[in-house]
Design a binder for these strands. Structure first.
Lengths: 132, 132
DNA sequence: ATCGCACACGTTATAGCATAACGCAATTGA
DNA sequence: TCAATTGCGTTATGCTATAACGTGTGCGAT
């Protein structure tokens, strides 16, 4: 799923996420875009839905927030499972991939004949700076 | 964290989760316990908080639901990271552990000096029966 | 014994996250 | 040109979770 040109709303939402230095909730995004004419949550959620589909934005399930992909130039969907480390103090998020983890999880699903659609890996804790 | 004797509310909530053959939302639990005097969400959330702490219940972040631990006789917290495969069709959940995955994620966090507190691994898709 | 503390509990209210359902406008392609 | 698709705006609603307050009970320390 490669990203076609973004619509106005999608571009606005993406821009907000890119500029943020951490994940944002849909409602926070909404607030940041009120000056640009956003009035309702659905405007944000609809844009997010597409951005997620294009792979340029990730959803952090454990904190109900969204974050711009760390390397949007490539197609993130081709990197296998994306994992996140989320600092609960400063809110910073690190995105990474580990093919061995992918492999082990795929082994498991294959063994169970489970058809995986979407896998979430999120580590919450304290980043180096905050743990000190 | 080993489980002390459960209080009345905790026992009721745990029983509901044990009898269910899939994850339940807090509000679904609430509805099932109205006959036992439950009136408000907090009664459920407070019980769940303790049950999570004792390791006899897991929270599924990606679907905002709760499920009884698959092997509550042991202390689940001692098994390393718990992973879940969640069927989006029938709602069934499989719980598993993979020490190699744990190891890889721990390697990563150690490398980044990230202090992990809680790790979520959830695979959503279709179970064997539903994929057929 | 009784005071103080910790903890479970009950209740009301509110905050935060997400989607349903309707209608309109622009685009596209048969 | 007509039908289908997609994006957009709006109102309303539903689901998830917690804040804040007060009550009662058990239990150890003085």
């Amino acid at each position: 799923m490669n990203a076609p040109a973004l619509t106005k709303n999608q571009a606005l939402v993406f821009e907000v996420l890119e500029k943020a230095d951490g994940p944002l909730s849909a409602y926070t995004i909404l607030d940041k875009l009120r000056d640009h004419g956003f009035r309702a949550p659905l405007q944000v959620y609809r844009a997010l839905e597409k951005l997620l589909e294009y792979g340029v934005v990730h959803r952090l399930e454990s904190i109900n927030a969204f974050v711009a992909c760390a390397h949007p130039e490539q197609n993130c969907h081709s990197h296998g499972i994306v994992a996140f480390a989320i600092c609960e103090s400063c809110g910073h998020v690190m995105e990474f991939h580990d093919h061995e983890v992918d492999h082990r999880l795929m082994d498991w699903t294959r063994g169970k004949k489970f058809k995986a659609e979407k896998t979430t890996i999120e580590i919450r804790g304290l980043c180096e700076a905050c743990a000190a």
